[in-house]
Nucleic acid binder design. Sequence first.
DNA 1: CGGCGGATTGAAGGGAATCAATGCTTGTGG
DNA 2: CCACAAGCATTGATTCCCTTCAATCCGCCG
Lengths: 270, 270
Amino acid sequence: MSEQNYSGAITEGLLTGGRTLRAAFLNTAVQTVGGGSTLIRVDERDAPVFLIRRGFAYRFCDLENGRRAIVDILIPGDIAGLDHVLVARPVSEFTAAGQLSLNALSASAVRTLMQDQNISFRILSLMAEARWRIERLATTVMRMEARERIATFILGMYQRLRRHGLINGLSFNLPLTQEQIGDHLGLTDVHVNRTLRQLREKQLVIIDRQVVMIMDFDGLRSLLHGIAEPAYMPSPMMPENNTYRADLAPGRRGSCRKQTMPHGVGKASA
Amino acid sequence: MSEQNYSGAITEGLLTGGRTLRAAFLNTAVQTVGGGSTLIRVDERDAPVFLIRRGFAYRFCDLENGRRAIVDILIPGDIAGLDHVLVARPVSEFTAAGQLSLNALSASAVRTLMQDQNISFRILSLMAEARWRIERLATTVMRMEARERIATFILGMYQRLRRHGLINGLSFNLPLTQEQIGDHLGLTDVHVNRTLRQLREKQLVIIDRQVVMIMDFDGLRSLLHGIAEPAYMPSPMMPENNTYRADLAPGRRGSCRKQTMPHGVGKASA
DNA sequence: CGGCGGATTGAAGGGAATCAATGCTTGTGG
DNA sequence: CCACAAGCATTGATTCCCTTCAATCCGCCG
């Protein structure tokens, strides 16, 4: 997390630019959309830019063979749609995964803000970070197996949520179905399910009904083959007081789904 | 290729910024490095930014399990290392695929240039384009089979080289080994070889000793499942007079490698 | 000529997809 | 209040694409 990983000369500028950019977003009215809503369509002209305040969204690309690839997942504090600040036509769609709160700015408003060089730097660094994310995803999908892909995904999401100040412990909400996880990792929903069972039986991580519980952090990390999280600058896009948290909602109703445990553990303890 | 795909208000600025940026690079001495040279190391501090003038380079990520993923391929006119204009520590390495000519600028020099907002826009658009490339790669690797991945790769490279004004016909040099192609597409070199044979037997494309010959453009395109090339702005990073071409070198020495043709065709015509 | 990197091909094995059926939860309407 | 439907999760059986392992071949170079 050391800021040494940013060019020292502009660390301060990046922070300042981030704060100014956030202020511009917070100056707009908060919108709320329901799960499954499409935020940005591919053929939309002059699509706006969004700051996610609460909830998750994802960007995907549909193929003509009926398959889908989720190429990026956005969490609170992320900005969606920076591509078409310059490119008029969005290259892929955005969809809300669950309910979403957000602030919107027009692309031209963002371009105007970029007259402030600190904001320009900040936006470029956000693009670089998003690019790094998708490069890591491509690497894992290209060269790792299902178990390792899921471990990389879970730990990456964990670290990202932490960096945004959204969680403290080892559990968090992940409002994605197994099918969406598969679309993000290049797997079928069936195989995601089987692999999650493996990880559960190995006591590495439990994902039950969109709740992730990391049981063995180091065990998961050992599946990553050295794929590291670069120490990016803490996101300044979230308010200092962590109003919007992704921690486990208190008093989650309903009991745990019946699930296979390592040889007889579940039965023995019952 | 319509500029309608860029926000009209800044089309001119993007072109101007590109020209200014190119001029700054061309103002430096041309360097030449041999094939296999490492341009940027991961732990290098203040790595420079390169404009590729001649030859190909690629960026890769090595995993601890011995596997490698090539996440981007750079062609003449591309700029390598824009990430660490802001992030001090590069996130992956650059290597020359074959001999390479290039101009270098320090990261701080590029930051200074970014005081010109047109250059800022241009660099952001280059980042967006690189991000789009890796997103398309991730999509194909996630959701397409070997034959389709290779078709997407070949056509994408073809269109990119054309956009840079480096080729006119349907043949071009591709200075990558089959192993490198596999590392880029998430396949083994063995399977790349087999798949290339398939494509050759179907008369779609012939790749022999780093020379690509597209035999059936539409046939290849039908393998893409709708993955399209967004109409990005023509690269202004190459001189108007196409000094550096990637067309087939005239008078290529040596005969064609013996290769399997569709059922008996080779033998019949021999 | 021998060595070497890259390309080629065969045989065997494995990981994931596909096909198909069932169970669990939640929300809806009678 | 319960039946019912829809969406999601779970699991088994089978198939297939790709990997792995291994051997050979080709062209190039010292």
